[in-house]
Design a protein around this nucleic acid. Structure first.
Lengths: 343, 343
DNA sequence: GATTGGCACTCGGGCCACGAGAGTGCCAAC
DNA sequence: GTTGGCACTCTCGTGGCCCGAGTGCCAATC
């Protein structure tokens, strides 16, 4: 039926435009796709698609390019995620396998994603608040100062220096610390950070009043570490791909680069993947709430150790992007990195 | 004397070119600088400077632009570092003061430097091998696995998971760990990482043979943490400034962005500041050993807690750069961050 | 010997006209 | 609903042209 062919035309337009980055006309479309109809018919379809707001013509007598809405339809209804070839899968696994620690995993992941998709890759560090406490350690570092170290199940380490208000290097100080260490670990170990935070609040009341001051300071430091906003981190790679992809950003790429440096923005965007259950999400052009990224699209998903969702990752590129490929790469990389983190 | 005026002409050319980013001719030079001579004289001087290879003309009948060698002379002999105004100094101090931990210090530093200079800023994390061990901690994390945590005087924390080969959660395991903890800290605390590394080598031989296997694994993990190459880190900010600074990169900016993402390269370059005693260093255009950065200049210096040099920081920008300003900002920021780290 | 005014020359960039090519919209016929 | 045809509209690349900024050189001057 005719509605059906119209969508096939849209798909062909998107595919051609993504590949050539030039407006595609009815004739050149027929040369590359066997649609079984004449150029005139295609023109009629194009007129209809333009009417629906799915494609647009930059100038009166140029070809058409997809609008954001057009890409949306393409992504939702017309494309399917390209499966990765076994060779690609092996390559991904191989590349990520060699990582020695969490930093290395994240670093390799982001580089891998950038090179697979030829876009800018973004990887969020495993979120503190969505992981659990593995261990809390207290280290006296001279005078009244104390280093509070928090280690999570995802391997992240947070640290704060606190002023305990009294000398801790003597016998009594050591004993205080040992007791406190036990107390803190009992209260927090194995709990999610949010739970741990509430447990911690009760700790100062349980200890000997003479030590209460020290404990308060330590607990405050830990709670600060648990403050999600402050300590979320993202890493990116492949920014050079942005400028290589050609000047198809409505403005220049400067605002995009600026937006990418605002890690807070990226975190917000990656954070929303959680709301969507961590599945693959695509945000196209002006769907994006941040002005600097209005001319870009993002493909994101969640990942985590085992089945727990701990963070997001994805790619950012021009709206003229190979969505099928990007979605495949993002999903595959998320799967692999989750597997690695599960260890 | 005439040689003297020739250099004044060079200085004027550099200043004008940096400001306008257009080749400067004899006449427009006179409009902006009171040189006390006629245009013809300036032309003669320019011809001489061109002969010496300090300036060049992009086309037969265009103005002149400085060569790398010209900038070199300018930096070495013709410019002086702009002192920071008290207001700027206060702003720097104020901005850095609020940092809560090392990550935050580095993050603020790099952003500050980028916004002060309007260039790409690069900050190396305090180097592991040039700092000292504050504390070593062992945390059993279930089964035979053990988390080895290394904390340095500059606040960095490194961690490795090791397989101890036997269960550590029972009584005997705890005792083993306690003894080992004491042993390791005695061997390393307060030492530079390099020293600590040699001390560590002797530890396995000193302990009870039954525990030797565990100790070996732990020591190996620590030594891996001390491996300088692997764990050096840099952070950058202001990449958008690159594209904003206009198209004065001989190639496009893509290779520059690529080079900047190769952190290893940046680390190498920042590493050389140590050889120069940590003082301000300027690397201009083709003086740069890395192809991707041939069209850029770097201004770098060392910084550290107190008088110890622990890392480098600097800016990367087009050779057409405000060297005096960049040098001032880099030096000032290094001074302030060193002061902060000294706490 | 350095400096200067004058002058002829060069070259890049902006401007305009022009033609080619790609693409469109519409209409009448199938 | 589809098709072929046709007139029309743009963009883009090309070539010619002129203008202005800038140079190099020379002879005169300090």
């Amino acid at each position: 039926m005719t509605e059906d062919r119209r969508l096939r035309v849209l798909r062909a337009i998107v595919q051609d435009y993504v590949e050539t980055s030039e407006p595609v006309g009815s004739k050149s479309l027929l040369e590359r796709h066997a649609l079984g109809v004449s150029a005139a018919t295609v023109r009629n379809d194009m007129a209809a698609l333009e009417e629906e707001g799915l494609i647009a013509a930059p100038h009166t007598s140029a070809g058409r390019i997809p609008t954001d809405a057009g890409y949306r339809v393409f992504v939702d209804r017309l494309s399917q995620i390209k499966p990765m070839t076994p060779a690609e899968q092996r390559a991904i696994g191989h590349f990520l396998e060699g990582a020695v620690d969490l930093d290395d995993v994240v670093d390799r992941t982001v580089r891998l994603l950038a090179s697979l998709t030829r876009q800018v890759a973004v990887v969020q560090y495993p979120s503190l608040s969505r992981s659990s406490v593995r261990h809390v350690e207290l280290v006296p570092i001279g005078g009244p100062r104390l280093l509070v170290v928090l280690i999570t199940t995802t391997g992240r380490v947070e640290q704060r220096v606190v002023d305990a208000g009294c000398d801790l290097l003597d016998e009594a100080g050591e004993a205080t610390l040992a007791a406190l260490r036990t107390e803190l670990n009992a209260a927090t170990a194995g709990r999610t950070l949010a739970d741990a935070s509430t447990e911690l609040a009760a700790v100062p009341d349980r200890v000997d009043p003479s030590r209460r001051e020290v404990v308060r300071a330590v607990v405050a430091a830990l709670e600060e570490s648990l403050d999600e906003e402050r300590e979320e981190r993202v890493v990116l790679a492949g920014t050079a791909n942005l400028v290589k992809s050609g000047g198809d950003f409505s403005a220049s790429i400067a605002p995009v680069l600026e937006a990418l440096e605002e890690h807070v923005v990226l975190l917000k965007l990656l954070g929303t993947v959680a709301e969507q259950g961590g599945t693959l999400a695509v945000r196209i052009g002006a769907e994006n709430p941040y002005a600097g990224l209005r001319s870009t699209s993002m493909v994101t998903t969640g990942y985590g150790a085992g089945s727990d969702l701990v963070a997001g990752l994805g790619v950012v590129g021009p709206t003229r992007m190979d969505y099928a490929g990007a979605m495949a790469s993002v999903r595959a990389v998320a799967t692999y990195v989750s597997r690695i983190l599960a260890d």
